[in-house]
Design a protein around this nucleic acid. Structure first.
Lengths: 194, 194
DNA sequence: TATAAAATAGCACGATCGTGCTATATTGAG
DNA sequence: CTCAATATAGCACGATCGTGCTATTTTATA
């Protein structure tokens, strides 16, 4: 019962990388097996269906996001400093050379397709929104943001900034993508400052 | 040679609707054939490959965008009025109940996958960016925007706003999505006003 | 209306998909 | 070391994929 969890981890890790490159939809049991060097049924035995595999990959990726982005940001001081940390870590995580953010592509792929995959994506996108909304609320408490700052609006706009950055950076290869992101980010923050 | 273009149109129209619902990647010759009630090879004969079909669907959709969004906005007065028209028409087009915007999902699906499909998407995303940048420049000429307004930054931020709106509206079903969009849009514009 | 041209269908191919079932190989507990 | 439990492989299944090739049907022209 130890070897099991180890290869399971190996499978999920490989699947995560594949999903980051080609999107959730393109994940295949056969191709995953090939990547980790096992048989199709060997991989299948760990997950009772393709959907279950996909769900586990999503969970696995979300955990990676938590460790790489959220947990690290939490080690920074409350308020503005943490907000900037979140921005840095998030940008780095969702823009790794090995592949983009599967939640972004997934969100657009599955927005019209009801089912367990969509539900899982909704859950995680909501949690990302909440992270930013809470970070803003803390900035209000710390009296760095205005008392009447609209924290939901803040989260919404930060989210849009990340999405736009992704398009300009990864699709359009715009060399100014980083600059566009920073200016936008600063604009959003400025509007909420005390 | 007349029947040909007619069914060709019928095929592309059906394919566009399918692509809007399930994303570019999920488009299949067989399923397309089923939708229009012909044989697989009947559909195939019109396009020499699946990629060619996909390319034509993209072009067809882009043309629809041009008619429904760009051309209509161009009938409005130069400057701010046209910018607001663009926003309205674009929002409506990319948020039809029948399905979302294939360029958005496609952009995230194909950002890491070199090839003709990606190239086509880059071309159209660039043209969308240009539409907004030019609209902003016109607003500068009309002396509604500041002389030193950063029109590229304007386009970048408007783009992010649309993307974020899509997630909040279509995926999260957030009832405040429209309001979040409007506030953000107004914020962006305000910063560029004279 | 006859006939060449164009459009569509039918069928076959190898590949891959998800998913069962059965057998073998590997592991960990006594 | 033994042996039950677990993990993995092998194989088969129907379905669907993209793509050829060959008929047949439909269209437009002379």
């Amino acid at each position: 019962m130890e070897k099991g969890v180890e290869t399971r981890e190996k499978i999920l890790n490989a699947a995560m990388h594949m999903v980051r490159e080609n999107g959730l939809d393109s994940l295949t049991i056969g191709e995953t097996a090939k990547q980790v060097g096992m048989s199709k049924s060997g991989v299948f035995a760990h997950f009772e269906s393709r959907d279950e595999l996909l769900l586990n990959v999503i969970e696995f990726t979300a955990q990676d996001f938590k460790v790489q982005v959220f947990d690290r940001a939490m080690q920074h001081n409350r308020g503005l400093e943490r907000i900037h940390a979140l921005s840095r870590y998030w940008l780095r995580w969702s823009n790794q050379p090995s592949g983009g953010c599967p939640f972004m592509s997934g969100a657009f792929e599955f927005d019209d397709r009801p089912g367990v995959i969509r539900d899982a994506l909704v859950k995680h996108e909501k949690s990302v929104h909440d992270i930013w909304e809470r970070a803003a609320k803390i900035a209000v408490e710390e009296k760095e943001f205005k008392e009447d700052a609209d924290c939901k609006q803040f989260a919404y706009e930060v989210f849009g900034n990340i999405l736009s950055f992704h398009i300009y950076k990864r699709l359009l290869n715009d060399v100014k993508a980083g600059q566009l992101y920073n200016v936008c980010f600063q604009n959003i923050i400025s509007r909420h400052l005390k």
